[in-house]
């Protein structure tokens, strides 16, 4: 079925955890010594997540705010160091690489951010934003850079005559294209797109989504596409990963996930997606909100909101298990 099944995996995420620790200041340490009930605050942003991404695949990473999806994306892109676990690129552990190899691997994974205005340097011209990295890393010779930038700008649908402009002279959709051009300039194989179309108007969002799909065909790119918008993810992805409070709750091929969600959280999430086809619907209240990751619920993180929770869900953490071919779910109801 899946044409990517036999291909090798491009990125392997192996038991990645990322903890953010807010350590005690001096006053806090003294108070603690005198017996005050305070301790370091630890946020388990990502908790033992494993995922294999095949070459040429688009993986959608979905979850509500605070579920750790952006943190996971940043760990993969090398922005954050993982607290535990390894990220493998084409079978090689990124941490163990040194010198040129490490740099080459880093270049192959690029990231596109949500807000292009805060991720583009407002004082740099577009030609420098796009052209700086490929020259520094020796992807192109500095005397060929003008042509190279022109080529990349054409590829993402920007007019090369705007190369000497600054980011503020562009509209939101064009700025996002600049961000994409900058990522493409170092000829990556793998793009982490963190809410890359969330800030755009519907008609502009369609343009950028079409660009992502065209680039994937032309350059044989692999995407980790992070979004809270299930409609966008359904449209673009081959496979969807659902996260809740730092843990993966379900992984499935897109059409199967949307046709038949397994995990109660996925079911609740899908039921809430507004669709053009549903008219004058009766909205039903969903129980509770996503709890704080500083003090997550015991056992299955979703149990306080789950309509089918049992005593076991409060005590035992469900493991992610294969429930059908290529489908994984972390729920006690499956056993």
């Amino acid at each position: 079925m899946d044409p990517n099944a036999q291909k090798q995996s491009i990125v392997t995420i192996n038991q990645i955890s990322k903890r953010f620790v807010k350590s005690l200041d001096l006053a806090g340490r003294i108070a603690q010594r005198f017996g005050a009930d305070i301790r370091e605050e630890i946020v388990y942003a990502v908790d033992k997540v494993s995922l294999e991404i095949q070459d040429g695949e688009v993986v959608g990473l979905v979850g509500e705010s605070g579920c750790g999806k952006s943190t996971l994306g940043r760990v993969v892109a090398g922005v954050h160091e993982p607290s535990d676990g390894k990220v493998l690129f084409r079978g090689q552990e990124i941490d163990s690489l040194t010198g040129q190899d490490a740099q080459a691997a880093a270049l192959k994974i690029q990231m596109i951010f949500q807000d292009p205005m805060s991720s583009l340097n407002p004082r740099m011209r577009v030609q420098d934003i796009i052209g700086e990295a490929p020259v520094v890393h020796g992807v192109v010779d500095s005397k060929d850079i003008t042509n190279y930038v022109e080529e990349i700008m054409l590829r993402v649908g920007l007019d090369p005559s705007y190369a000497r402009r600054y980011p503020h002279q562009f509209s939101g959709g064009q700025r996002q294209r600049i961000g994409i051009a900058r990522a493409l300039a170092v000829q990556p194989d793998f793009l982490v797109c963190d809410e890359s179309v969330a800030a755009l108007d519907v008609s502009i969002q369609a343009q950028v989504l079409n660009l992502f799909m065209r680039l994937r065909e032309e350059l044989n790119l692999t995407y980790l596409f992070i979004s809270h918008d299930l409609g966008v993810v359904e449209h673009l992805s081959d496979r969807v990963v659902i996260m809740y409070l730092g843990r993966v709750v379900e992984i499935a091929p897109t059409s199967e996930l949307f046709a038949d969600p397994n995990h109660p959280y996925t079911q609740a999430l899908l039921a809430e997606v507004p669709r053009l086809e549903t008219r004058q619907r009766k909205f039903a209240p969903v129980k509770g909100e996503i709890p704080s990751p500083i003090d997550p619920p015991s056992g299955c993180h979703f149990h306080p909101r789950c309509p089918q929770a049992s005593a076991r869900c409060r005590e035992e953490i469900p493991v992610l298990r294969e429930i059908a071919q290529k489908r994984f779910s972390a729920c006690h109801l499956n056993s």
């Binding site: 008609s203 369609a206 359904e234 449209h235």
Partner: peptide, 22 residues
């Protein structure tokens, strides 16, 4: 144009109809 630019389950993977310009 607006309705066709919304990703929908009927047109998964197909390029979205886009309104040119801004």
């Amino acid at each position: 144009g607006l309705i066709s630019s919304v990703p929908s389950r009927n047109r998964r993977g197909v390029p979205l109809a886009q309104i040119p310009g801004m």
